[in-house]
Design a protein around this nucleic acid. Structure first.
Lengths: 324, 324
DNA sequence: ATGAAAGCGCTAACAC
DNA sequence: GTGTTAGCGCTTTCAT
């Protein structure tokens, strides 16, 4: 690897001058400038970012932690984060915590040691202390705990109410909600939304709980449909669960949406790749990722953001698992 | 951040001694050892890995580049890589190249500058030179070009022949293959497998080409089904395409598998979450990721691997998009 | 068994 | 304008 020293030598100047042209600050004569630049070109010199980090304590990297990379929601979010980060000259390193607080902590340590400039957490477990004495800007995305961290979420509560209302409007008589895991903020908010709406309408209901992951959801769906044959409308806490329910329903010969109406939550591409296409509460996934990234970068760059908490609107996408 | 100096001071020893206990090499007296250890504990000292990297030129990190994080195949692969890497004490940083050679190069530069210990490439574009003068161990996974890099792939060619054969066995009379993008190795191999098998059987066939991604696949499926109403069996180059075809077929009221049989390739979870469940050529995704990681680590640690090229077996999983 | 000191590649204060 | 040099936090040789 070619170093700044070699460039300096080849160009007949000192390392300081080379450093100046690299960071273009300080005084450099026109000729030194062009000279050094051509040497850099010639030797294909790239400044060593580890050395830079050691001195600067920054890295131009953003750390992104997701809880489950196999849930389509998160890759879509990650794409947005990457896009925006890249525009501002940041690289993003993506880590998968697998919902294990252990791994989450491990990656946070990694980030800290790598001097990442900021962290976006879409992960599971939140013990505020971990973040507050971190001394690195952190933005929470989607899953926020009871922290005071800057955060970007969608309006889970309202979305859930709308979904529940829709089902009821469409003539569902025995409604159910398959909620997500306890302690996961969006799952809780959606649950509350469901409950409030159903109570307002004085409707009876059934609650079941499922993981947000494929296998868990599929299994739970199977059990649920076996146990509750009279349910004719289900609001699922995310698209993964909804897809699982849909599949199991079709497998059992239940007609969707004639006999059973299903609505999911997320609006990930998943719901569009199946038949019938899934009716769902759509979150502005890309915007959420983009917003969180811009917010983070703003904080990194020392600007005070006007707002520290963004709640993005959800919209119902009526596709084919609910009646016309 | 607490540094080695502070630890040394607090423990009343020199930094050299602290360093020795950290790396447990060199002579350290029992009492110095326990003393330093307790101070480390007390101050919650974590060695700065950037500084370490600068000296050691290693980082205990493995870089993983995937071409498309929204294709379920790659997250599944990534999971395996992470699992195995973690066992051996490596962290993995995952980067999404979006199939853009530009980004790929960018991330490789990043890796190089971060002193990653090794790289796993499942990405798209291969210009050998990039890798050969990289001076970092690289293993190609799934998508190999015409390189001499150590590689782990599945037997795409044989898998494709088996898939084609199955379709023909099941009574398909007008067979088609929707191949993946040109220049992508697995797509090419699967294409060759299809062609050879179909020629061997003297069957007529239709070839169409699609991207490996959702939107592209869905659109292509729609066009294809409109244009070729007589086709009664399709071998799709990956599961994403197959899912797209299935969905469009159902949407048009085509009965699967009665009127149209479909077989995919990959064996990602995608195919199990739909109804009817997808018949597919299953790759040992987890094993592939695990194998590639072990191979890479072996090379990193300076051991000569017995083999440098692994071709993993594929198996047909007959589910419900082909006849019984 | 332990410490002093050089050096990994870079930046920035300070001198000229 | 440009060069010298200290120092970022760590590891390792070389003395002792």
């Amino acid at each position: 690897m070619v170093t700044i020293k070699q460039v300096a030598k080849e160009a007949g100047v000192s390392v300081a001058t080379v450093s100046r042209v690299l960071n273009n600050n300080g005084y450099v004569s026109q000729e030194a400038l062009t000279n050094v630049k051509s040497v850099i070109e010639k030797l294909n010199y790239k400044p060593n970012s580890v050395a830079r980090s050691l001195y600067n304590k920054t890295s131009n990297m953003i750390g992104l932690i997701v809880p489950d990379i196999t849930n389509p929601f998160f890759p879509e979010l990650a794409r947005a984060v990457e896009d925006v980060a890249m525009i501002y000259g940041f690289k993003v390193v993506l880590c998968n915590s697998d919902q294990e607080p252990e791994k989450e902590k491990k990656y946070i340590d990694l980030f800290k040691q790598q001097y990442v400039d900021g962290i976006i957490m879409t992960a599971h477990s939140y013990e505020s202390e971990i973040y507050t004495d971190l001394n690195i800007p952190v933005v929470a995305l989607d899953r926020i705990g009871n922290t005071t961290l800057p955060a970007v979420v969608s309006n889970n509560y309202t979305g859930a109410r709308k979904a529940t209302d829709l089902l009821l409007q469409k003539g569902v008589e025995n409604i159910a909600h398959i909620r997500g895991p306890r302690g996961v903020a969006p799952a809780e908010d959606r649950y509350r939304g469901f409950i409030d709406e159903v109570n307002k309408k004085n409707a009876d209901y059934i609650i079941e709980e499922s993981s947000f992951q494929l296998e868990g959801a599929e299994k739970k769906a199977r059990e649920f449909l076996r146990a509750h044959t009279d349910v004719d409308g289900i609001f699922c806490s995310n698209d993964v669960i909804a897809v699982g329910v849909l599949k199991e329903a079709l497998k059992k010969g239940i007609k969707v949406p004639e006999e059973l109406q299903i609505i999911g939550f997320d609006g990930s591409f998943f719901g569009k790749m199946i038949y019938p296409e899934l009716t769902t509460v759509s979150q502005p996934i890309y915007d959420m990722g983009a917003m969180a990234t811009r917010l983070l970068i703003k904080i990194i760059e020392g600007n005070k953001p006007e707002k520290i908490f963004y709640e993005m609107p959800t919209t119902i996408i009526e596709r084919s698992t609910t009646r016309k």
